[in-house]
Design a binder for these strands. Structure first.
Lengths: 206, 206, 206, 206
DNA sequence: AATGAATGAGCCTTCATTCAT
DNA sequence: AATGAATGAAGGCTCATTCAT
């Protein structure tokens, strides 16, 4: 009826989009709070103001919405990681970029408002690795492969290295989430330093 | 009747202990196979020759038996770790001992016989950190604290270091479980080397 | 605007009639395919190009459209039956006419194209006798009453006779629908012969 | 504890048997009232004083209990029919025996107490023929085949005859159920007479 | 009118837990 | 204590129907 109409969606589309978002974000919250297995579709719709049946207008099942969430997250993370790999001039720079990106992603994605107001991370309890985790893993593995025979010795055990790097990412990231303030840069610096130099141990002979 | 009672009391206690063990070990297997959420009490008692009601003579709930299992495992692990700490003469030796012990523990505890004959790990799907994990974390943290100002610089971030070490333990351990053969010693060597020296990267100036 | 309205009113009515027919015929097909209970309103509207809400502009419920269908069918059948009664000069002729009419009606009404190309009957699964069945029943009963004291002995049990006649109609009709080709004339001839003469049994004394 | 114990089942077994029977008879009633499709498992358990879950201790599904009921009914009917065939010396005697048996079976099986106290038949609304119906059909067909070339002309259309006979059985049986008193013998006499002699029509030439 | 998303009662089923035996 | 059937809350999901657009 006015020019605005041309730019805005119809009311129906607006509602649809709003509902879809409400469901998605409720699901994210609920999954974070109770874990994928323990979370129920009813939990999800109960934390929206929608009716139970409405859920199924948007997602076929709990599985589907979980996939949607995970894919979505991974799709936001992956290009950032890849970009870092492309832009990095050395391995240290790459690692630093990747850790920073991942830690920021964690804050956005998995830290949730606890009842007491604190932001707490509850990583997805799915047994199976989430797409986001897989994305990091694969990206890091690719980066490491690229460096083999260059900065990294040819015979390196790529999988163990990847495991170690992502293990550090996971746990240091978790630790960072519990801290106040959540200092991603410091955490990244620490992680990179461990990976490249190890602990600054003075080996003794006693 | 009295003497009989005395004898059968002994027998009863035996039976009780045997039943409790049967339930615990069935639970361990079932949790490993299906994960905590998916596992049902029925699954557990079905893998024993007991009746469903009997379960509740020994454990109040599925939650309680899970806790019992976890505590139990932790209680077996902890003294080993502590022993290593006491016996170790240097940090490298300590780390090596701890990783070896932990990786062996993993094999015993979480790897299960898959239908295809492979041994697969299904770490407990509980969201909350397991007692065993907590035990490792605390032990390692204690060991690190002990070294502060000695092999480790005084101002070190104990928690980040612990996080990194346990993250590596977790992921490298997982990786090891997937391999054939499961070489705990090699995995431990790798983990220790990363922690003490970092990746053997030749930093370039390009 | 007024003239336009007059024209579009005409169009509207056309559309309404067309929609109603579309829904009715979709329903007929769907009921035939899946049976009344299994058929859903969604199934019905899905086989039209209308929206689900539109269904309720035409029919109050699934029940109502089923009734409409049945009534509709009965209303087409009834005059034919009545006509036969009026035109018939003797009972045999009447029966023959009625059976032929009924069997043809069955083919039109309940036989559907199965996926394998065969035409299969799926009689309405409603428990309650359909209007068409009732129509036949009443018509036949009327015809029989008319003949009482004439071709039929005065004391005859009209209801039992009607039951027998319609029972034969029902089952022989069904049988005919399963055959290929569907020979209504032969089926009618058989039915009439049974009713008038019974089975051609040679009673024996053994 | 007493001799009685030897003859009676344990209390548990008694309860089990009673529950199973309660469910079966509730199901019979509910199926009769609402038809197989419309009936729900909840309807069934709601008409017992058992809890919803209990149903599934006895039957896996609605389908299974329906099968149990149908099989059961058919298994009671079939031997009676077969016996009649064997014992009958002529076709008339056979038919009379079978109709009597079938009508009595109907009363036992499908007539239910209506809210108004009348006993009403509501034959199972399943689309697919019930085992009991199939039993009758097959039995009658067998009997007819046996008579072919003897009392029945060799070229007879067995299927049409069977259809006619069972159609009469069905509808006359229904009619009988609606009457008070329910006179199976009279109904059987009528049915047999129709089948063997047809209606007592005086064919006229007018 | 037509639309189609929203609604919510209700379905089938599972399963932790209780309790009579 | 052991048993195992009974319980009933809860879950995932469907679908007739309503209602804002």
């Amino acid at each position: 009826m006015s020019t605005v109409t041309e730019f805005s969606l119809g009311k129906r589309e607006q509602t649809k989009a709003r509902n879809r978002d409400a469901i998605l974000s409720a699901a994210k919250q609920v999954f974070a709070e109770k874990g994928y297995e323990a979370a129920t579709v009813r939990d999800i719709i109960r934390s929206t103001d929608l009716a139970s049946g409405t859920f199924y207008n948007y997602f076929k099942s709990k599985e589907e919405i979980a996939a949607a969430l995970a894919t979505d997250a991974a799709q936001r993370l992956q290009p950032i990681l890849t970009e870092h790999r492309k832009r990095a001039t050395d391995f240290r720079g790459y690692l630093d970029g990747v850790f920073n990106a991942y830690f920021e992603f964690l804050i956005e994605e998995y830290s949730i408002e606890a009842p007491d107001g604190r932001r707490v991370m509850r990583p997805p309890a799915t047994q199976d690795v989430t797409p986001a985790q897989k994305a990091v893993f694969e990206e890091v593995r690719a980066a490491i492969s690229q460096r083999l025979g260059k900065e990294l010795p040819a015979g390196s055990d790529t999988e163990f290295i990847t495991a170690a790097v992502t293990g550090i990412a996971r746990n240091v990231g978790l630790q960072m989430l519990y801290r106040k303030p959540q200092d991603t840069a410091a955490a990244a610096r620490f992680a990179v330093s461990i990976i490249l130099n190890g602990l600054p141990v003075e080996e003794r002979r006693d």
